[in-house]
Write a protein that binds this DNA or RNA. Structure first.
Length: 423
RNA sequence: GGAGAGAUGGCCGAGUGGUCGAAGGCGCUCCCCUGCUAAGGGAGUAUGCGGGCUUAAACCUGCAUCGAGGGUUCGAAUCCCUCUCUCUCCGCCA
């Protein structure tokens, strides 16, 4: 949510910056609505002030035993107009709210202009894609070849976009999550948190999934709860409606959770394999920081995610998302893309964003500033990493000619020191 | 699932229809006092939104907010209804 004050005081500039990221804000209708709000609010408050004042007089007069019928008649005449004014104000404010809740965040000045993925700017490449002297298989063929990955059974149990992993592959999946958690807690100073996977609508609103992306979420109707699409939702909402002490900033959480996404509107996209699933695991980093520190925090958080890929010795690149390709709530986003030899391309494995105060304003997440006044925090998060896609990258990059897969050195302690997955 | 009790500021806690945004305490800030420390005295200290105001701060002023939403009333923290959550007891359960 953007600051209403900013929209009032600097609308033209806001409209321009939103247009740059592909969002058309109807300036005239906003102004009209805002003007009406102002007039109705002033009138409503006048009437309320009058009613309050008169009612107070009644109390005073009664306590002195005076006759109050004249004053009561006076205040009674306010009733209808006041009620109408209050209703109209509530209606207008709801409309303004609806507009406000569907406006995306303003991009930071360091975000490149552009409309699509093609306009994203590569920041760096790390590692060199391995040369294969045999025909590379994709992760589906590698996994199924080892009889450790089974999509047919997943279809029987649940349907498309689910997977079943077995044996050493299931263990490797678990090992990856453990390795990521250990790295972030032991080397990067994050506190591990275990959180609910079902959340209420307020939490979804807080991080920006609602109201705009309601259709993308799994909804448990009987209890009116939603399956989390990312740990970002429960973890960031830890500070919803809270005032964090200045000395407790930055707050750094890491959490390993499953993520559930309906993937509405992606029919036909990435239908093969584990790239795009309704359910996948992710290790998520979340930081709650002082506003002056958020851009520095974004760089270090990105570095923390990169560390995992470096330790796994997987080639990757970092891209700075252009305005048109950024998510709804983000002010700036870096994606990390891992090399997938079978696709002969880099594919997203992490997304690290600074939301500035956009989520904090929706959540009323604040800290006490140097003057002891509550002020909105800045929030950030990043995947570090998406576990399923990391597994895909290992299967493809570490595959051998005989169909086996070498286990990256850092994972072997988690795998009973095994060196390979083999049939 | 059944029965009961409760939800008030940063925290604790009083308040059952009228000058209550809310006693008192704790905490915090400032000032005074005291060689230091400890103790003491005084003042201040909720949030959101609007208006004054064309930028920011400060200030003045209005409205709203006592778990949430409705209702009764000239007037609601207080009375009524619905919901949410917490606690206690019973039942069930990994």
């Amino acid at each position: 949510m953007l600051d209403l004050q900013l929209l009032r005081n600097d609308l033209e500039n806001v409209v321009q910056r939103l247009a740059a990221r592909g969002f058309a804000l109807d300036m005239r209708s906003f102004q009209e609505l805002e003007q009406e709000r102002k007039a109705v609010q002033i009138r409503t408050q006048e009437l309320q002030a009058k009613r309050n004042q008169t009612s107070k007089q009644i109390g005073v007069a009664k306590s002195k035993g005076e006759d109050v019928s004249a004053i009561m008649a006076e205040v009674a005449s306010l009733g209808d107009e006041l009620k109408a004014a209050e209703e109209k104000l509530a209606y207008i404010q709801n409309q303004l709210d609806d507009v406000l809740m569907t406006i995306p965040n303003l991009p930071h000045e360091s975000v490149p202009a552009g409309k699509t993925e093609a306009d994203n700017v590569e920041v760096r490449r790390v590692g060199t894609p391995r040369h294969f002297d045999f025909a590379v298989k994709d992760h589906v063929d590698v996994g199924e070849g080892l009889k450790l990955l089974d999509f047919e059974t997943a279809v029987k149990i649940s349907g498309a976009r689910f997977s079943v992993m077995k044996g050493a592959l299931a263990r490797l999946h678990r090992a990856l999550a453990q390795f990521m958690l250990d790295t972030h807690t032991q080397e990067h100073g994050y506190t591990e948190v275990y959180v609910p996977y079902l959340v209420n609508a307020d939490s979804m609103r807080g991080t920006g999934q609602f109201p705009k992306f309601q259709d993308d979420q799994f909804h448990v109707c009987a209890d009116n709860l939603y399956l989390i699409p990312t740990a970002e939702v429960p973890v960031t909402n830890i500070v919803r409606d809270e005032i964090v002490a200045l000395e407790d900033l930055p707050v750094k959480f890491v959490s390993h959770t499953p993520c559930f996404r309906r993937e509405a509107g992606t029919y036909g996209k990435d239908t093969r394999g584990m790239i795009r699933q309704h359910q996948f695991d992710k290790v998520e980093l979340v930081q709650i920081v002082h506003p002056s520190a958020s851009y520095a925090a974004l760089e270090t958080l990105l570095g923390h995610a990169e560390t995992i890929l470096k330790k796994l010795e997987l080639p990757y690149r970092v891209v700075n998302l252009c305005m048109g390709d950024m998510g709804f709530s983000a002010a700036k986003t870096y994606d990390i893309e891992v090399w997938l030899p079978a696709q002969n391309t880099y594919r997203e494995i992490s997304s690290c964003s600074n939301f500035e105060a956009f989520q904090a304003r929706r959540m009323q997440a604040r800290y006490r500033n140097e003057k002891n006044k509550p002020e909105l925090v800045h929030t950030l998060n990043g995947s570090a990493l998406a576990v399923g896609r990391t597994l895909v990258a290992i299967l493809e990059n570490y595959q051998n000619a005989d169909g086996s897969v070498t286990i990256p050195a850092v994972l072997r302690p988690y795998m009973g020191n095994a060196e390979k997955l083999s049939a």
